[in-house]
Nucleic acid binder design. Structure first.
Lengths: 156, 156
DNA sequence: TATTGTTATACTCTATAACTATA
DNA sequence: TATAGTTATAGAGTATAACAATA
C-alpha cells in the first residue's frame, strides 16, 4: 500500500482533522459545496462550445420555448434584465439566436434558435447529460431522482 | 402568420407556461436554484452581524478548530489564499479573531476567536439554525437528512 | 526547493439607477 | 402610469502571477 516510510510528523494529520461538523449540518453549506464540485466540470466540458452556465440555460429555454422574450428568461432564470442584455447580444453576434419582433408587443423581441444554435444545442445538451452522469456517479438513479425532488422542494 | 386571434385566450398564458423541463432534470441546475433561494435569506438575516457566507464559514471553522491556519481554512472551504487575506484582515480589525504565532511553524499564524467573536458566533449560529428551519420548511426531518446526505455524495 | 501568507491585479457575476419606446 | 429592453456603473466573488519569510 504505502511504500513511503511511516510518517512521524503529527502535522500531516492535523490538516485532515478539521471539524466542519456544524457547517456540514446545514443545507446551504452542503448545497454550495455541491455547486463547487459541479461548476468547474461544467465549465471545462462546455468550454468547447464557448458557453457558460447562464448561456446554456438561456439557449435551452429558447430551444424549448421558441419566441420566448428576454423578460420571460429573466423571470424563469432569476437573471436581472441588465445582466441578460450582454448574454443575448453575444449569442446574437455568434448567430446562435435570432431576435424577431414580437407578434403582439411592439416593445418585446421573440427569441429563436438559428440553425447554428440548433446544432450547437444538440451537442451541448448531449454533453451536459454526460456531465450529469459523472456528477452523480456516486448516486443510484433513485437517489438522483430523490435529490432533484428535494432540491425543488427547497426553491419551488 | 396565424397571429390573428379571434379567440379570447389563444396563447395569452404563454407567458406563464415556460417549459424548463430539460434544465429541471439536471442536478446542477436544481442545486443552483436552491442556492438562489437560500442565499438572499442568509444574507438578510446575517446582515445584523455584518457577516457574509464566507465570513460565517471561516468563523465557524475557527470556533470549532482553535488554532487553525489560513492554509487549512483555504483547503477546507475551497477559498484561494489571496481571497482569504481580506476576510481574515477584516475579522481581525473587528476584534472578532486573534492571530497568534503558530507553535511549530514560524510562517503560519494560528487563528482563535476573541471574546467578541465567541459571543457573535453564539448568536450567529443560532440565527443560522433558525434560517435552516425556514429554508427546509417544506421538508420533513428525514427528507432534510436525506438531502444533506445526497449532496455530500456529490462533493465528498 | 517547497510552503505560508501576502500584494497586486483582472475577470466574472451580480446589483441599482436611469433612460427609450412602446403599452 | 406601467412595462420591455437597454446603458452605465458599482460592488461582490473568484482567478493567476509574483514576492518575502520560513521550512
Amino acid at each position: 500500500m504505502s511504500s513511503t516510510a511511516p510518517a512521524k510528523t503529527p502535522r500531516a494529520s492535523a490538516a485532515e482533522t478539521i471539524d466542519a461538523g456544524f457547517l456540514e449540518s446545514l443545507v446551504g453549506y452542503n448545497t454550495r459545496r455541491a455547486m463547487l464540485m459541479i461548476t468547474p466540470n461544467f465549465m471545462q466540458r462546455m468550454a468547447v462550445y464557448e458557453l457558460g452556465m447562464a448561456d446554456f440555460s438561456v439557449l435551452s429555454l429558447i430551444k424549448h420555448n421558441p419566441g420566448i422574450t428576454s423578460r420571460q428568461l429573466c423571470t424563469a432564470l432569476s437573471i436581472l434584465p441588465p445582466n441578460l442584455v450582454g448574454l443575448i447580444s453575444t449569442l446574437d453576434k455568434r448567430s446562435l439566436i435570432e431576435r424577431r419582433p414580437h407578434p403582439r408587443d411592439g416593445r418585446a423581441m421573440g427569441l429563436h434558435l438559428r440553425p447554428a444554435g440548433q446544432k450547437l444545442m444538440r451537442d451541448a445538451e448531449r454533453t451536459v447529460l454526460e456531465l450529469e452522469q459523472l456528477s452523480t456517479a456516486n448516486l443510484s438513479p433513485a437517489e438522483q431522482k430523490t435529490l432533484i425532488r428535494l432540491l425543488q422542494k427547497i426553491y419551488a
